[in-house]
Design a protein around this nucleic acid. Structure first.
Length: 466
RNA sequence: UCCGGCGUAGCUCAGAGGUAGAGCAGGUGGCUGUUAACCACCGGGUCGGCGGUUCGAAUCCGUCCGCCGGAGCCA
């Protein structure tokens, strides 16, 4: 491995004159019969490749260097010098260029130095990180993940590694993937003819988690400020640019806190992580701003500096009605907001993220805290222009009697929730939390349309090739 | 899952009943401190699969498969 990355070298003009080695993959090669070849080499560390100038008197010039094509892996050593040409400040005057790995058939190498469609690149997901776009996404994704951890760490939160496999069927947030070691071709049966899950690995039905929330609540009521950050799974047959079967979520949970604390946290959180990305990945953000979503930088700057609009669900319904706008789905108290409503609200009525609170209890989960009006719960969604719901959260029902009444109302067996109920029996406190869709945040930040481009290997219906 | 659209060269696309096209990529040669390089020439195709209509189908019809967009579910 080399001492410096391409990013290191390009970042510091003071290093000119040093003898350096870089390793990476060829983007383009141009020959000048005046006696040099220009080889752009990228190692993933920066949106810009470094230009390696290979003089024709190198031993392997004719035999190898002029044969280099996009995708070849090389190791180049030489002096870092100021460039004679335009387009880059520094370049490497090569004293050696070693070919580490050839491209087997340049004509069919899937990543060519040109624009490719996103759909095509998805078919070569193993090679697409070599493109400018996916490279930029990858660096921003890393930075965003680090920013999330940093935000929570700075505020005394503990990262809780909640389980991926859950044996309780009580999460209730959509279809779940089953986890089983049973022989599908020869399932054990109970006398009644049902599948006998007592013979399965966990001795009961097990699934992939749809949220770490219930588990993280347990740690919240001991550690006070906690969060989860990891993959979650939904087996919904969703075919949209905003859904994945496997995606990442960040879910903080705070004790001794109410819904306002929750919204405050969400707002500070979004502003912080966005600011961090803007600061640390100026180069990549400039790329997105230029090629993907013109204006995305100013949109993020605006988000970081302006106050979020806060509206109660009832107020939203009123304002949508009064707007005079006709919608495909009518706006009615008690019905969930449709995509078109959310869009109109965030993109036209308000023009920035909106925190909508206090939804009707009939359209929200059992664990959300009932308001005094009896009709609504202390829920909140943060809606962002362009992608809709980016954060969903609530104050949790901490009163055992109210929680039990709600479970009964929904026909959910209290015994399935025994340990969740225990948290209300032993030192219960008001607490709240929310979930941030990590890929949704990536979409919002980069302006990349399809969620399948902001995760390395997307999982969606009929999509698990890589 | 529902509605709509699209599958043509390695890639991006044009062609809409009558011999399969362009740009880029690749090869060869020329030119050049180049940078989406340029000029000339060359190779490259089961027109997504199957069936039908027709003298003749990439083109029209049916069906299946795949992908994309919107909706629903949600993050």
């Amino acid at each position: 491995m080399t001492e410096y990355t391409v990013a290191d070298l390009l970042a510091d003009p003071g290093r000119a004159g040093e003898r350096v080695t870089i390793e990476g993959w060829v983007r383009t090669r141009r020959d000048s019969k005046a006696g040099v070849s220009f080889v752009h080499v990228s190692d993933g560390s920066s949106p810009q490749p470094i230009q390696v100038v290979a003089p024709s008197d190198l031993d392997n010039y004719q035999s190898e260097i002029v044969e280099l094509t996009s995708g070849c892996a090389v190791r180049a050593a030489g002096q870092l010098v100021e460039s004679q040409g335009k387009g880059q400040a520094l370049e490497i005057r090569a004293e050696s260029v070693q070919v580490v790995g050839w491209v087997e058939d340049p004509e069919t190498y899937p990543i060519q130095p040109k624009r490719h469609s996103m759909e095509y690149l998805r078919e070569v997901a193993h090679l697409r990180p070599r493109t400018n776009l996916i490279g930029a996404v990858t660096r921003v994704r890393h930075t965003l993940a680090m920013a999330i951890h940093q935000f929570f760490h700075d505020r005394g939160f503990y990262w809780i590694h909640t389980p991926i496999i859950t044996a309780s069927d009580c999460e209730g947030a959509g279809e779940m993937f089953r986890v089983s070691t049973l022989d599908l071709a020869n399932l054990p049966r109970t006398p009644g003819g049902e599948v006998d899950f007592s013979q399965d690995f966990f001795g009961r039905e097990a699934r992939l988690t749809v949220s770490g929330q219930l588990n993280v609540e347990a740690y919240c009521l001991a550690m006070s400020r906690v969060y989860t950050f990891g993959p979650t799974f939904r087996a919904e047959n969703s075919n949209t640019r905003r859904h994945l079967a496997e995606f990442w979520m960040a879910e903080p949970e705070i004790a001794f806190a109410d819904l306002q604390d929750d919204v405050d946290l969400a707002e500070a959180f979004l502003k912080s992580i966005v600011t961090r990305v803007l600061e640390e990945r100026q180069d990549d953000m400039a790329f997105f701003d230029r090629w993907v979503d013109k204006g995305c930088i100013s949109r993020l700057e605006k988000l970081a500096s302006s106050q979020f609009e806060r509206l109660r669900y009832g107020e939203v319904v009123e304002r949508l009605r009064r707007s005079g706008r006709s919608f495909e789905f009518p706006v009615e108290w008690g019905a969930d907001l449709q995509s078109e409503h959310e869009r109109y609200l965030t993109e036209e009525l308000v023009g920035r993220p909106v925190a909508v609170t206090d939804y009707p209890k009939s359209i929200k989960a059992f664990y959300m805290r009932q308001n005094d009006d009896g009709d609504t719960v202390a829920a909140m969604d943060i809606l962002a222009p362009g992608i809709g719901e980016i954060i969903g959260g609530s104050q949790r029902e901490e009163r055992l009697d109210v929680l039990d009444a709600r479970l009964a109302e929904l026909g959910l067996p209290a015994e399935d929730y025994w340990w969740y109920r225990d948290l209300r029996r032993y030192g219960t406190v008001p607490h709240a939390g929310f979930g941030l869709g990590f890929e949704r945040a990536m979409q919002y930040i980069t302006g990349v349309d399809n969620i399948r481009e902001v995760i390395p290997f997307p999982r969606a219906p009929n999509q698990a090739e890589f």
